[in-house]
Design a protein around this nucleic acid. Structure first.
Length: 938
RNA sequence: GGGCGAUUAGCUCAGUUGGUUAGAGCGCCUGCUUUACACGCAGGAUGUCGGGGGUUCGAGUCCCUCAUCGCCCACCA
């Protein structure tokens, strides 16, 4: 092995570029539906093409790559389907913003085609960037299959789905109160809204009772909406207003009579005046009230947020201006009673950050509820998928939010008044007899129609219809709206596999194995994938859902670009390498719902100041540790001879490390099966660092120099390193490949009990399936445990007495019977690991000599230090040992003195306490003897 | 208002079904360029397990309650 190739410090960047292209060349990431191997599939949650990947993506993709690489090594035909999401409103919003800022233009200036063209250009740029970042992270996606939610394959799936929904009457058009974004001029989903606490005002207005001197007082936070009031509601049993029920009040400013109605749902008689103005077209509660009482619904708003002709004198004015004037006019007429400060939460659009207006408009909805025939609807079936266990959610608690949300069975508004997205495949046809349609589309099973509520026809088609498809009868006009982004996202697990075509991919890889995502889209995305998966394919889209934690900064705040507390995964890769990023994230992926990363600033080599977190340091040190363990191995593998060796034929420390390796491999496998990424990673770290490096490699150093058992040690080292590379590869693909390749040069054939040729890449090496019972060795475990304990005791004595590391001493271990037998085999090991000249293990020793002593449970460790120690100090130390032993003894005795404990605790627990008592007493006796000797001597 | 989660060492977190003296990493202190690694080695210090109550022979762990923080949902005339 050329040591020049093995620098002391591992260089992650050269390994990254070298091995990623190697993997691509070899085609390891490509899944093959014709292969005999069983499938293992993950579809990537497609990142939005709005921008670059953030740390949350890095975490999620690390998790997915761990699973995919692990299963690939286990012999599965692993498919990780990559792709990106067009993210309708989000992407259009950023491109529109840029248009405004850079060219001072609106989307109307550039037109529909012009805008969409610009968004495609944006998409191309960001898609490349995102996919590039995934590659930088080492993600083993099947790039040949990369999809985009707006590409022809996905578009086909969207069309077909919409058409089938339409035909099955699962989708309908209706006027509903929606959340309207007046800036983007589109409906937005409930989930695309965030609430903001604001200091507002509460206006109390006087409504004169028609034909009377009486007034009703109503309070409102939005006085401008009064123009659209169509009733005033009181509680039906409120004694104050009984006499007014059925009468009318005159709506000020509009001079319109509106009824006084009784409504027990809307009105809380305890609150305010007990009178509520009802504006059905501009408030969700009022809308419901309007439906209950069959009230007129007066829409005051134009799509752009100005008031329309229904607002009378206020028509054409923007909403804020209307408010000002309405308040002023009311005040002028003496109808404004008071204005009070009032805290309220206003809904803001996620994308444009402008206030959302409830707005009555025509939209498309997917029916979620059960059918009139009693057949379970979409929501019900999707709930059943989880309650029946067809879909498993981890951690379990998240099943609740899924079920709660679906339980509401709210219809899903799928239309958006945007230009970027899948155009709704609906054409509005002229009023005519149905026979005309049958004629026009005879013989076509890809066209379906339904009467529109507003007259004419709604015609749905899987393929585009020409405007003149109905000839002279009239023009067809396509619905200008597009579908909610989540419509295409909901199809992702099957659309990416080619549905509705009966592809080999669909047959083999569907349903997918795991979906990994964050909890905020359990409802938006996960639930809807189940719904459309069931509708289109008759089966669930995935067997497991893993919900990973959300990354926050050190103060528990969400990371965000605007707050400046975000960590860019690419910066972390630049600083520490991809393996470091992945390792740290894997180590952090516990079952908690939040994951905190204290953020700090640092400077990159190129001088740029970026955010990082000290937590990534461990991602830097661990690969380096592994790298150096490998260097040590490679330096010592000269003359490596790959002969067969059974664990039981090896030395005691060999048997110990091999047993531990087998146990670790088994535990790591079950951790991964249960999505316990942090446990798996921590276990591997501990084994590598605390067992293999700290102890095993130190144990065998002497053997590797000149010892007949050198070849055996070499075989063990090669085996452990080989298996460690495979176990760690899913977490740290680059450093493990680098080591694997280097190891291949000196030990192309390796392994135990019978060596075999190593795979050409650790990517495709076999995952360790070590039968623990074949490798575990209790005797070795006990013996090495003894060694470790004694070595630590000697080291502590040396350190406490300030014995320089260079000073050779000759410790004595006084141990009885069985313990001594076990220790004897390790005399040389103990000596070399404590820098001792001679190690004496005996059953008796002279306690009067000048020495430092520690009393262990089964032995005394004596450091003869003639002339080097202060007897008084030694006596003090012994007294401290005594105190340290008496404290637990008191505890044990208190327990044993407790009759309840002795009577009720399990026998083994009581016995353990008794044994502990004996042990402590023996230790105390030994310390007392030493103490006497010490005091006599001084 | 409803739900979920968190609260353990200075920081970030583990702590399986209750059972010896509560752990790790980082940070801190002491010593070491010991031939793989100073991104390292050896040793060390540091905890009223958020407060209170309860169940139990025994509680970081189970129950109740309060407090603080975070997230989600709903509502706010």
């Amino acid at each position: 092995m050329n040591l020049a190739e093995l620098p002391k410090q591992y260089d992650p960047h050269s390994a990254q570029s070298r091995w990623y292209s190697f993997w691509l060349e070899k085609g390891y990431f490509h899944a093959d539906p014709s292969s005999e191997k069983p499938p293992y599939t993950i579809v990537i949650p497609p990142p939005n093409v709005t921008g670059a990947l953030h740390l949350g993506h890095a975490l999620n993709n690390t998790i997915q790559d761990i699973l995919i690489r692990w299963r690939r090594m286990q012999g599965f035909d692993s498919l990780w389907m990559p792709g990106t999401d067009h993210a309708g409103i989000a992407t259009q919003a950023v491109v529109e913003r840029r248009l405004r800022e850079e060219e001072k233009k609106t989307r109307h200036d550039v037109g529909r085609e012009g805008l969409v063209e610009r968004i495609w250009a944006w998409k191309d740029e960001y898609e490349q960037r995102i996919l590039g970042q995934l590659r930088q992270m080492g993600c083993s996606c099947d790039w040949d299959r990369t999809r985009f939610t707006l590409d022809p394959v996905c578009a086909r799936a969207v069309r077909t789905t919409f058409f089938r929904l339409f035909r099955a009457d699962k989708i309908y058009r209706g006027k509903r109160l929606v959340n309207w974004d007046t800036q983007l001029r589109t409906a937005v989903a409930d989930d695309e809204i965030e609430s903001q606490q604001t200091a507002g005002q509460l206006w109390t207005i006087r409504y004169p009772v028609t034909g009377s001197m009486e007034f009703l007082l109503v309070a409102t936070t939005r006085p401008e909406t009064m123009l659209g009031d169509t009733a005033v509601a009181v509680h039906p049993s409120d004694p104050r207003y009984q006499h007014l029920l059925g009468m009318t009040v005159t709506l000020p400013l509009m001079d319109r009579p509106i009824p006084v109605i009784g409504d027990a749902i809307l009105v809380n008689p305890e609150f305010g005046t007990g009178c509520v103005k009802v504006t059905p077209a501009h408030d969700p509660n009022d809308y419901a009230t309007g439906l209950r009482h069959n009230l007129p619904m007066i829409n005051l708003l134009n799509p752009d947020g100005t008031y329309n002709e229904n607002a009378g004198a206020y028509a054409g004015l923007p909403l804020k201006e209307v408010r000002k004037r309405v308040v002023a006019d009311l005040e002028a007429q003496g109808l404004l009673v008071k204005v009070e400060p009032h805290m309220l939460t206003i809904p803001l659009s996620d994308r444009s950050k402008t206030a959302i207006e409830p707005y009555l408009s025509d939209q498309w909805f997917v029916r979620m509820g059960d059918g009139e025939d009693g057949q379970p609807g979409f929501a019900q079936s999707a709930m059943a998928a989880v309650t029946s266990g067809q879909v498993n959610i981890t951690p379990e608690r998240y099943a609740k939010s899924y079920l709660d949300w679906l339980g509401e069975k709210r219809d899903w508004c799928v239309s958006r008044q945007l230009w970027w997205g899948h155009r709704i495949p609906i054409w509005y046809g002229p009023e005519c007899e149905e026979a005309v349609l049958e004629m026009a589309f005879s013989g076509r099973d890809d066209v379906a129609w339904r009467r529109a509520e507003t007259g004419g026809w709604l015609i749905c088609s899987e393929s585009d219809l020409a405007t003149d498809a109905m000839g002279e009868v009239g023009e067809l006009v396509q619905d200008p709206d597009v579908l909610d982004t989540w419509f295409s996202s909901a199809l992702w697990p099957h659309s990416t596999l080619g549905w509705p075509e009966p592809t080999a991919e669909l047959a083999k890889y569907y349903p997918t194995s795991v979906l990994s995502t964050a909890r905020d889209i359990i409802t938006l995305w996960v639930a809807r994938m189940v719904i459309f998966g069931q509708f289109n394919t008759g089966g669930v889209p995935f067997k497991n859902v893993f919900i990973h934690p959300v990354i926050q900064d050190g103060n528990g705040k969400r990371m965000s670009k605007t707050a400046g507390n975000g960590i860019d995964p690419v910066d972390i890769i630049d600083l520490y390498g991809a393996d470091a990023l992945r390792y740290t994230l894997a180590l952090s992926a516990t079952e908690t719902q939040d994951l905190r990363m204290p953020v700090e600033k640092t400077r990159l080599p190129d001088g740029r100041e970026v955010n990082t977190s000290e937590r990534f340091e461990q991602g830097r040190t661990f690969p380096n540790k592994l790298w150096n363990a490998a260097r040590f191995a490679l330096m010592n593998l000269e003359g490596f001879d790959p002969a067969p060796l059974r664990p039981e034929e090896a030395e005691i420390e060999d048997r110990w490390i091999l047993g531990l390796l087998a146990q670790t491999a088994t535990e790591v496998t079950s951790d991964l099966e249960a999505f316990r990424f942090a446990d798996a990673t921590r276990r591997l770290r501990d084994f590598t660092w605390n067992d293999f490096c700290d102890w095993y490699l130190e144990f065998v150093k002497a053997r590797l120099r000149d010892d007949p058992s050198r070849p055996v040690a070499q075989r063990v080292i090669a085996t452990v390193l080989d298996r460690l590379c495979t176990l760690l590869h899913p977490v740290m693909p680059f450093v493990t490949e680098q080591i694997w390749q280097a190891l291949g040069e000196v030990a192309p054939s390796r392994g135990m009990p019978v060596p075999g040729p190593a795979a050409e890449s650790v990517c495709i090496a076999n995952w360790p399936e070590l039968r623990v019972q074949d490798w575990l060795d209790e005797e070795a475990e006990a013996t090495v445990g003894q060694w470790r304990e004694k070595i630590s005791a000697i080291r502590t004595l040396r350190s406490e007495r300030n014995i320089p590391p260079s000073a050779k001493i000759s410790p004595v271990i006084v141990a009885g019977g069985e313990v001594a037998v076990r220790l004897l085999r390790g005399e040389s090991i103990l000596a070399s690991m404590t820098n001792s000249s001679i190690m004496t293990i005996t059953e008796a020793a002279d306690r009067s000599a000048e020495s430092a002593t520690t009393v262990l449970a089964d032995a005394e460790v004596i450091l003869p230090l003639e002339g080097l120690i202060d007897r008084k100090e030694e006596a003090a130390k012994l007294k401290k040992q005594l105190a340290d032993l008496e404290k637990p003894l008191a505890g044990v005795r208190a327990k044993l003195a407790n009759e309840g404990f002795v009577a009720r605790a399990p026998t083994d627990v009581v016995e353990a306490q008794k044994a502990r008592e004996c042990e402590l007493l023996a230790q105390i006796a030994a310390v007392l003897t030493l103490l006497e000797a010490a005091e006599r001597g001084s």
